[in-house]
Amino acid sequence: MAKGNLPAVLAETLAYEGGWSDHPQDTGRATMKGITLATYRRYRPGATEADLRAISSAEVERIYRDGYWNQVRGDDLVRGVDLTVFDYGVNSGPARSIKALQQVAGVGVDGIMGPATVLAARGLPARDLIKRVNAKRLGFVQSLSTFAVFGKGWSRRIAAIEATSLSWVSTKPQLEADAKDARTTAQKQAGGAVVTGGAGAADQANHLSSLPVGVVIAVVVVVVGVLIFRVVINSQRAAALAKVAKEA
């Protein structure tokens, strides 16, 4: 069990949440170190954007501990699983990350990290739990309307969080095998994209021959696009896993 692991976990999360941002398509708008102005004002009523820019390290840790770490009961989760669930919670809300964990653990899904959820999570192999929760996280962000804008960055972050989480509970050979598997999957998917976009496009067209040509072309483009993005995702995973394996 990972007691007092928040500093290590938070350091990983802040590598992606660090700095100021105010992207017009980011629903959180003004954000510093992953903390929105609305969230900051719950701890410091009346705070301005300037105050948020100057937020102290102590305030940052307090907000992440109160609002996220304690919500997912990070101190009660196995090292590695804590990072996976916490980072997902920071990005998409603790309730959503808890629900993903509950779905994988096979317990009632209510978004509340109760004793039954903790017990079930601790009873499962950490490596499997980490992989499956991160896969659910990836599936969720892919469903968002802003995925076209932020998707590549989100998937890179998820790949890195998965790799780091696994590095905390895996041997070097296990990490090397994970990287090899991801690389092999990416290569197979790349081959599938080529076939679908090349000679395979004719087969696709035959199956859709009753539809207008424009619709057929659009369908093939979408299919190829999905395959290509899967290649990108597994290439990101392979690179992240190879990095932590090298450092192990």
Rank of each mutant, 00 (worst) to 15 (best):
V72Q: 05
V133Y: 03
N70P: 12
K172V: 15
A193H: 03
V72P: 10
T184I: 14
A126C: 05
A177M: 14
N134E: 07
T185W: 13
V133M: 08
A182E: 08
A160Y: 10
R79F: 04
N134T: 10
V72N: 03
I161P: 07
L77P: 00
V109P: 12
K180R: 12
A190C: 11
K99L: 13
I161M: 03
V133D: 01
S143F: 01
G111H: 13
D178R: 09
R96C: 04
T117V: 09
G123H: 04
T184M: 13
A135H: 00
D76Q: 15
G106Y: 07
K131A: 13
G93I: 09
A95Q: 07
D87Y: 08
D181Y: 12
S97C: 11
R127N: 11
D110I: 10
G93K: 08
T84F: 05
T164V: 15
A135Q: 10
G80I: 03
G192M: 01
A120H: 04
G80A: 07
F140N: 05
I130K: 02
A95K: 09
E176A: 14
G106I: 03
A95G: 10
V133H: 02
A159H: 00
I158E: 02
G89H: 10
T117G: 15
T171G: 11
F147M: 04
A179N: 04
R73H: 08
V118T: 12
P173Y: 02
A182P: 00
R122C: 14
G114E: 11
W154F: 08
T185V: 07
I98H: 05
G111T: 11
A160R: 10
R79I: 15
A193Y: 00
P115K: 15
V104P: 01
I130Q: 03
L119K: 15
G74K: 03
N70S: 13
P173A: 14
K172F: 07
Q103N: 12
A105L: 01
G191E: 03
W69K: 01
Q189L: 10
A120F: 01
N70Q: 15
G151A: 04
R156P: 05
A148M: 02
L83W: 01
N134Q: 11
V104T: 12
V72T: 13
D181E: 14
S143W: 01
S97V: 12
S97L: 07
V109E: 06
D75E: 12
W69Q: 05
G123D: 01
V104S: 02
Q103R: 15
A190E: 14
Q102P: 08
G89M: 09
G80N: 00
F140D: 02
R122L: 15
R137W: 06
P125W: 04
S145E: 07
G93T: 08
A120N: 02
G192N: 06
A186F: 09
Q174D: 06
M113Y: 08
G111W: 12
L83C: 04
R127E: 13
V78N: 13
D128S: 13
R137G: 06
P94Y: 02
R156E: 11
Q71I: 13
G153Q: 05
L124R: 14
R183A: 14
R127C: 09
